[in-house]
Design a protein around this nucleic acid. Sequence first.
RNA 1: GGCCCCAUCGUCUAGCGGUGAGGACACCGCCCUCUCAAGGCGGAGGCGGGGGUUCAAUUCCCCCUGGGGUCACCA
Length: 473
Amino acid sequence: MVTTRIAPSPTGDPHVGTAYIALFNHVWARKNGGRFIVRIEDTDRARYVPGAEERILEMLRWLGLDYDEGPDKGGPHAPYRQSERLPLYRRHAEELLQRGLAYRAFETPEELEQIRKEKGGYDGRARNIPPEEAEARAAAGEPHVIRLKVPRPGTTEVKDELRGTVVYDNQEIPDVVLLKSDGYPTYHLANVVDDHLMGVTDVIRGEEWLVSTPIHVLLYRAFGWAVPKFYHMPLLRAPGGAKLSKRTGHTSVDYYREEGILPEALLNFLALMGFSMPDGRELFSLSELIEAFSWERVHLGGPVFDTEKLRWLNGKYIREVLTLDELAERAKPFLARAGLDWKSDAYLRRVLELMRPRFETLKEFVEKADYFFTDDYRFEEKALKEIQKGAEILKELKTLLSSLPDFRQETTEPALKAFAEERGLKLRQVMQPLRAAITGRLATPGMYEMLEVLGKDAVLRRIERALAQLGPG
RNA sequence: GGCCCCAUCGUCUAGCGGUGAGGACACCGCCCUCUCAAGGCGGAGGCGGGGGUUCAAUUCCCCCUGGGGUCACCA
């Protein structure tokens, strides 16, 4: 059975790169009717950030990337948090030690720094310590690490399913640390041990891991385990071209969520980073992606994470994919957070219907449509000028509008047009002051629709308030 | 710098020897129009360079260049 996993570290905000890799792992597992596992790699006590794990899991829930096994769900290979599996790694490291495939090294960080300076990297000098001596020093409590004894000379072949086979000269592979002096495993050891024990068959991860894959291959071989398939996805780039990072742009999924990006849109956009549909379609759901997915359609060039297109896609979901009902539900938390209230769900849906083509994120909706939810909206500078210019017209409009039997479009449209014509005014000369008065701004949905939605009372009140903005005189 | 990966419009990409190099975002113009959008139509814009292979290269091979990754007791 195809088994994939993501192995995020709880070291900070939930990263879009994690979401990106999670997406392809999820897709591949689902496509093959396999399993998708979430494993937390919290083996770096120095970089550990409390709460980060929960935020990563919440991100996955939000995105709808469901997994079969994980720290919060359990599963046949529990625990799914590496800090809770320490004895396992120690046992495996010791096994390699006993079989002469690893060795204890006692250099201090300072000594290592010195060796690095002189030799360009660790030179494997602790290989020369006689095993008995090493065991004695270890038994005496001397701090040390366990390192992999990379076979030298030799070569190691690594097969990446997307790029083919690469042969590494073992000279290029360092005797990496497997077990740190604090008893925690390094990524290399923990990752290989867990992937094997958890039955992971397909390792889909970022390209940053490509060059350390020979280490992993060597480990699988040392343990006598089957080597999984490796797929290294291109790294998401920042607009400058460098790997996406906190310095170069927004990397937190929470940021996009708070901006009002929809999870479907983010997922769709992430899929477009490297993958393309056979028919060129750019708007598609997760299940459509699973249906059509194929590694042959994955492009290896590092894609730039371009927020412009993400926003466009989000707008596309807002106006073409979500129902008004769904959209309303998504918008509510954003309105609430802004302290805005809505009369009724029906009213909110109607406003959303009018505003839909005019915003690309939910945050933008709240910013641009505040006047639908409060009479206490602000007046933009330009709107104020328009009101001033059209003060006389507004006064007359107030009379006209208050005389109308209702505010249905069939009523207001002919009335306003006739009004403009009688006075020899362009329609916009009438509309702009009115628009400015009842919304505080110059860019809004169509007038007739707005009048109907806002209603006669509110509109008349608003005209009154707008004129009052001009002050006496 | 060593090693590794990658390379089509500004950006995301299609292409898998013979195409007027296609689409999308962004940009520009026009249409629609009460404003702003959305939408429709049109435009501008690309195969990094040099060698091969071939009747024929964007496409296959090599070199260069460029970009990225990696060289920790971080993942």
